[in-house]
Simulated assay, not measured.
Amino acid sequence: MKRIFQFSLVGLILLVSSCASKYSKVLNSKDNEYRIKMANKYYEEKKYAHAQELYQELFPYLRGTPRHEDAFYKFAYSAYYLKDYQSASLAYQTFMENFPNSSLVPNASYMQAYCLFLSSPKAELDQTATHKAMGLLKAFVNNYPKSEKAAEAQKLIGQCNQKLEEKEYLSAQLYYDLGYFKASHLYFDLLLSDYPASAKADQYMFMIAKSSYEYAKVSIPSAQQERYEQTVEDCTNFLGQFPDSQFKDKATQMKSDAEQQLAKFKKLQNEQTQKTS
């Protein structure tokens, strides 16, 4: 069995070497027509890395000919199939710049945006690609509203929005978790302003109130009264807008606690007034 495995391994190595040698001959061939034929063959066989390299080598030869458009289009799709999405997006953009009158431009426009969407990282990372993808998807829908891909583009725009919302939420929540309650109050307020129709709008508004409550608790005594007043205002706004929220009881308790603290401040102020009068 061990010997059979060794023979199989040797055979595999020889096969790979043979394929590599054959491709090297194609790549280095001086016969451009032969290389075009082989590039298309590799593309049809889904050997996209070989096809992509050959197409790129052939662009100077094909430039200005009718076959240049087809080769460039397949070059872009090769990058897409290889999951090199950023390169693919750039290739589709370049295709549209080089062939603005092509019937393939609408699809290239969608694919440029779609590849950027696919290259978008997790929500906690930089979302430059997501912003750009969403802008391109919106432009595609505006330019080609009757395209069969318009509905799919709208879905992708929605997913981009969700990821950008999640990014803002993670930033606001991080400030809260680190104890920067004034900053978290601001960031949750901005988050709610940016996504007022969000399914999590009640959570964001609750966190605004919770941030002001925690901020008041850790403030110096001379600043606490004003900040507990802010808590009462935030809780009142929350309970008025989301009376059936799952956070209702917690918000009610925070409001009650803040009002009790304000009552203590008022009592103390009255006592001090009586002493001085």
Rank of each mutant, 00 (worst) to 15 (best):
P106C: 08
A263Q: 13
K167Y: 10
M134Q: 15
L178D: 04
M38I: 05
P121E: 12
Y215I: 01
F238G: 08
A172T: 01
Y85W: 12
M38K: 14
P196G: 09
K37W: 01
A258C: 11
S211H: 08
Y77S: 00
E44C: 00
A183F: 03
Q86N: 13
S119R: 07
N107C: 00
A108P: 05
Q127F: 05
A139K: 14
Y114N: 07
L125D: 15
H185L: 06
T231S: 12
S29D: 13
L58Y: 05
Q127W: 04
A153K: 08
F5K: 07
A133Y: 05
Q6G: 02
N98S: 12
Y187S: 14
F140Q: 09
H68S: 14
K275S: 09
Y48W: 13
V141Q: 12
L262Q: 12
K46H: 10
E57I: 06
A71W: 08
M1W: 08
L104H: 08
S120Q: 04
D31G: 03
A76H: 05
N143R: 12
D126G: 03
L186P: 00
Y23F: 15
L9H: 06
A251L: 09
E33W: 03
S256I: 03
L191D: 08
Y23T: 05
E233A: 14
K167P: 01
R63A: 09
A151E: 15
M111Y: 13
H131I: 09
L268P: 00
A49K: 11
I4V: 13
Q224C: 01
S78Y: 10
Q173G: 00
E148A: 11
N237R: 13
L62Y: 06
Y92C: 04
F188Y: 15
S29L: 05
E226C: 02
N143L: 04
S102G: 07
A150C: 00
Q112N: 11
L104R: 14
Q246I: 01
Q93M: 03
I220A: 06
V16A: 14
A223I: 02
L170E: 06
F206M: 12
E165T: 02
P66N: 09
A39W: 06
L58H: 02
L178I: 04
D202M: 10
F242N: 06
A76M: 04
T231D: 10
F7W: 08
P100M: 08
L104W: 06
D31L: 06
Y144Q: 08
E165C: 06
A20D: 10
D189M: 04
Q86E: 15
Q269Y: 03
Y215N: 15
L170N: 06
K264Y: 00
K210A: 11
P121R: 11
E124I: 04
L136E: 14
A129S: 12
A183Q: 09
Q52E: 13
L178G: 01
M111E: 12
L82G: 01
K149C: 02
Q224N: 09
P66R: 09
K25W: 07
F140Y: 15
Y48F: 15
D70H: 04
F181Y: 15
H185P: 01
A183G: 02
F72Y: 14
